[in-house]
Design a protein around this nucleic acid. Sequence first.
RNA 1: CGGGGCGUAGCGCAGCCUGGCAGCGCGUACCGUUCGGGACGGUAAGGUCGGAGGUUCAAAUCCUCUCGCCCCGACCA
Length: 476
Amino acid sequence: MAERITKRETDYSKWYTDIIIQGKLADYSPVKGCMVIRPTGYALWEKIQKYLDDMFKETGHVNAYFPLFIPESFMEKEAEHVKGFSPECAVVTHGGGAKLEENLYVRPTSETIIWSMYKKWIMSYRDLPILINQWANVVRWEMRTRLFLRTTEFLWQEGHTAHATYEEAEEETLKILEVYRKFAEDYMAIPVLIGKKSESEKFAGAKHTYCIEAMMQDKKALQSGTSHNLGQNFAKAFDVKFQDKDGSRKLVWATSWGVSTRLVGALIMVHSDDNGLVLPPKMATNQIVIIPIWKSDDQKEKVLNLADNIKKDLCQDCSVILDDRDQYKPGYKYSEWELQGIPLRIEIGPRDVENNQVVIVRRDTREKIFVPVIELRNKINNLLVVMQKEMLDKAKAMREEFTFMINDYNEFKKVIDEPGGFLYSHWCGSVECERKVKDDTKATIRLIPFEKKKEKGTCLVCGEKSEGRVVFGKAY
RNA sequence: CGGGGCGUAGCGCAGCCUGGCAGCGCGUACCGUUCGGGACGGUAAGGUCGGAGGUUCAAAUCCUCUCGCCCCGACCA
């Protein structure tokens, strides 16, 4: 008998690792902090890439590719940026057997090398905007790593745009944030809060940072995507100016934005259960697995015949696998496919052939549904839509259950610890109070919500005036 | 970097205290019986006991050094 997955309530962290290792999504590699993304896990990343890439293209962006290596001097050009990233960079000092003239940083993010190129490419307002995205790997030498959530090397996309005006850059920043929100909710079935990061949480080198934040099943927050308005910081650092219509030379405005393989971690932690991965239909490589059941050869022929026909029928709408392996019993197959998160399982046995029906089992609810063969295609298509919606609704309901309005700091400390969740509280805006909350409770300001209501209140910590609530939570 | 745990068959582990044939479970291969929620019996293959040095007639076991990984914390997407 194969090993079971650790229950969420026993050890959430172990459960998460079990899902990934046993579900064959990824494996530990020989290199510390780095993981191998296995085909099952990579397929999820490919889904993410496919949908997002389409959305980026629809909003006018194009893909390009910049080098993995960044000259040390480039990193040092933007003060905040180098301060934020230097400590966590891998640096190449030798190449071809000789010490390099100048050290090369393995990119932790590509602003600097990209803006060194934008300097060459931007002369006139007619060259703007530049709307480039790249799919790439980056390296950040984190002290502690976790599969998908934080690995030394990870895959991501990074958009880097250049604009003539602040307003245009700001519009771009918000447009991408909306793309991220829509993708998270409509495809991954992950409800997200959108808002702005506080000064201390924003990107190193940004004017301000917007983000999407999701709640995991352990009530911790996961920053799932960021969109930065970089102002003119990188234009200044790399001296990127353009000649405007009126003949004057102006600094270019910048944005950058990204999501990473961390999203796979989010997908796992939001939906999965103690039996393995649970995938919303749109994120699954295959939506359906058919498990044929037989005893005699005579039954086998009849069952497989029906299964084949059903597969052909359903393949018109979605991706279907027929698991006709002879060496495993049905029960084993059920467990194996549940581990893989396949949304729907169709069981076809001798009794079903006789009654001209099949059994459908939903992965998310594990509900068994008996359906006449003639109604199957409609029923399946309907179920896939329903599941996609209900998974989002379920995640949203959980988030709402663990969202609290907190006015008193003692109560805050209690609630953040148990049950935990998103706490909406007043904050005066000072770094000191933010810091104190973090030191006392480990909770940080996840975001300052856009829908922040004008509401008079007093800061949770110092009691000074506040104009509205911000969202606190413990983060990954 | 601080704290904890662990390196023995592909995976999970026992054996170490008290030195004496390297074992168990799962998995794998083959044969037979099975097949509607992780089947069973039989046979077989599979090992530099993380590495180096030392003590000893004899080391997985005792001593010294060393390398690596995982978990918790600080840091971070």
